[in-house]
Design a protein around this nucleic acid. Sequence first.
DNA 1: CATGACTGCCC
DNA 2: ATTCTGC
DNA 3: GCAGAATGGGCAGTCATG
Length: 564
Amino acid sequence: MKFEELSQLFKKLEAISEKTGKVNVLASFIKNIPEDSLREALMLISGSIFYPWEERKLGVGEKLVMRAISIVTGISKEKIEELFVKLGDLGLVAEKLSSEKKQKTIFKKELTVKEVYETFREIGNLEGEGTIDKKVRLLSNLLLHASPLESRYIVRIALEDLKIGVGEGIIIESIASAYSLNPEDVEMLYAVYNDFGEIIYKIRKEGKTVIQNITPLLGKPLRVMLAIKAESITEAFDVVGRPAMIEAKYDGFRVQIHNINGRLELWTRRLENVTKQFPDVISFIEESMTLDKPFIIEAEIVGYDQRNKKYLPFQMISQRIKRKYDIERMVKEIPVEARVFDVVYFDGKSLMNVPFKDRRNLLEKIINPIEGKIQLSEGIITSSDKEAQDFFNEAIERGLEGVMFKNLNAPYHPGRRVGYMVKLKPTKETLDVVIVGAEWGEGKRGGWLTSFTIAVRDEETGELLEIGEVGSGFKEKKENPDDVTFEDMTNMLKNYIIRSEGKRVYISPKVVIEVIYDEIQKSPKYSSGFALRFPRFVRLRPDRSVEDIDTITRVMELYERQKG
DNA sequence: CATGACTGCCC
DNA sequence: ATTCTGC
DNA sequence: GCAGAATGGGCAGTCATG
């Protein structure tokens, strides 16, 4: 299969906004992919090069792509960055420059899907000295032989972001449509195999029989079920029904644990293998559970200080997640506890269609809790707003992140954010800050300032101290008069731009905004020494001037208060 | 050998 | 992670 | 109601650079 054909598909999908339209186009394309390009084509359509269980990564980002474009076109990196700011997308930059390039004596061979995919795998497999130059060379070589349209998508593949409005959901629907299957069945196949090419291959070969008895595969990570967010206890109950299980939400990270005939393996939410990083968790499970029956359970791994029985901040445990060296030392320095909250496979049987309350009951039976090592997540079953409120309040007082509401009768729906699980976090403080910088946006936000550097005031010196950036909470479209759009922000701020530096602009401190956040963190990056966790815009404060914004003293007080 | 830029992935 | 938007 | 695409801080690892 020619890469040109795939590029045309991408172009067509990018131009269609309706989901059903995308599914129709993609379904008919999928039916006709020849078997010898099936896996490669589906990997490229899903915008990835390596499978989630592979340890290799592509290791290509914006900077490396800009270097490659610069080499192929002979245009300076500064000029390319300028175009990037203007167009909001490096794929479009490559396309534009490629079409403007004088077609000299270029020997243009036609690229194939296989060739493109294999080249990217080769790029990802490079390591050691000289790697970056080699990657740039391989990528430029692809671009050299590519048409303008192909260049657009080669660049986006390099960044593993096709921007064609096609995600897992649409690929699943398309496969279902192509082979007249139930989308839920295809979804389950994907949740188990994590490989679109493989499941299409199976469907073609085995027909509808593939959907019989799909069960999780031991040793192969399964996609996990995600929660939606609620703003209040009543809203949470409305989503999951009454009674509901209400559980503590721990500020750690999520793992899926497989017992493969006595051997334990751990995967993260995005299916990265982290078994080596957590030998302590492995031994907790060996201590607490019998391993004679295979299982797949889910847990939150959270930092825990045994001495004062307090949970540690997320930043601590994040030091352990990707660690390859000094693992044993960190096991001692940053102890963790596993809080198990679900089981999806046990003793040869899939539990995905078993109601949550029964899965939870099974967990109670198979885990012997050991304080500070492994326990079930704390929770209550109630229909009462008052009991729910008390449980929530207590969780917050203990420094937990919030609570989860769970539908007692819900099946396990892998890979989706459905209304079976709802998270509820406490309402937060806000800060009034001034905008001192910004960055030009990408993709559909190209041409607007979309991320704003914010600062608080040192009341002693009058100096402004940066405390992070905010780019969430603004509107793209004005629907109500008081909506604040990126366009509003851009118009308001462009007169105050002091200087530009690539995508970044420095702005005279005039515009005051109110931002909300979940937590104040110590920051090595910002001049205030603090940063906001999950910052988002609330509203403009035209009534306030730079002198009225929040101070570093207040930030320090808030930081001390949240430590409890 | 130390440092910084870049990338990928936790939240 | 949060938020907005189109369907 | 959901999927997709924007956007946040900060961690470790890798490679380049000086």
